[in-house]
């Protein structure tokens, strides 16, 4: 099963390698990982998409929490959230397909950000389903190159990722 996890981490050197090393050392999967500075410049926000059953996910969350530089770990499993990804696609753009590509890009609210005599480079954002639909339409036209950012995620409504300064008594609930 696929899971989206958000992390608040200290914005220090070496933190990313601790997280990447944890995943590789313990045989967990990373499908994608996005990291950049947050509103507070001392903290980075990270979005990781991973796969695994419930027991593996439980270990991933606990092991991440155990790393000293990680401030907070949230699994979006039971939280209503929004998630977006951006892709850049370079497609064949010949005379007979150019109009078709423009139409599709418009429908998907994308943008052509670079043009050459034989290619278009398209930028498009959306959730997984939208990007998949777009790519399937581009496939017959001819995708030459694809770069994805991986998704970033945020809880809906007023819910936020925040630091708790107080020590909390955590009740562990299993299964």
């Amino acid at each position: 099963m696929r899971h989206t996890i958000s992390l608040l981490v200290e914005n220090e050197f070496g933190v990313l390698s601790r997280i990447a090393g944890l995943f590789s050392g313990r045989g967990f999967n990373i499908e994608s990982l996005c990291v950049a500075e947050s509103l507070d410049p001392t903290i980075s926000t990270m979005t990781i998409v991973t796969t695994g059953n419930d027991a593996i996910l439980e270990q991933i969350l606990k092991q991440l929490n155990k790393l000293i530089n990680i401030i907070k770990v949230v699994d979006f499993k039971d939280i209503d959230y929004v998630s977006r990804e951006m892709i850049l696609v370079k497609v064949n753009a010949e005379e007979k397909t150019r109009a078709e590509i423009l139409r599709i890009v418009e429908i998907f609210r994308g943008k052509i950000i670079d043009v050459s005599s034989r290619t278009y480079t398209i930028m498009i954002t959306g959730d997984e389903g939208k990007l998949k639909a777009f790519l399937s339409l581009m496939k017959p036209i001819g995708i030459k190159e694809l770069v994805r950012t991986g998704p970033i995620a945020m809880a809906r409504g007023e819910r936020m990722l925040k630091i708790k300064e107080q020590t909390e008594i955590k009740e562990e609930v299993n299964g």
């Binding site: 439980e58 562990e172 299993n174």
Partner: peptide, 17 residues
């Protein structure tokens, strides 16, 4: 004291951290 030790190898009924 270490939550990662709990339910890692054997499923636990009552965890106490």
């Amino acid at each position: 004291i270490d939550p990662t030790s709990i339910s890692k190898n054997i499923k636990v009924d009552i965890p106490i951290v």
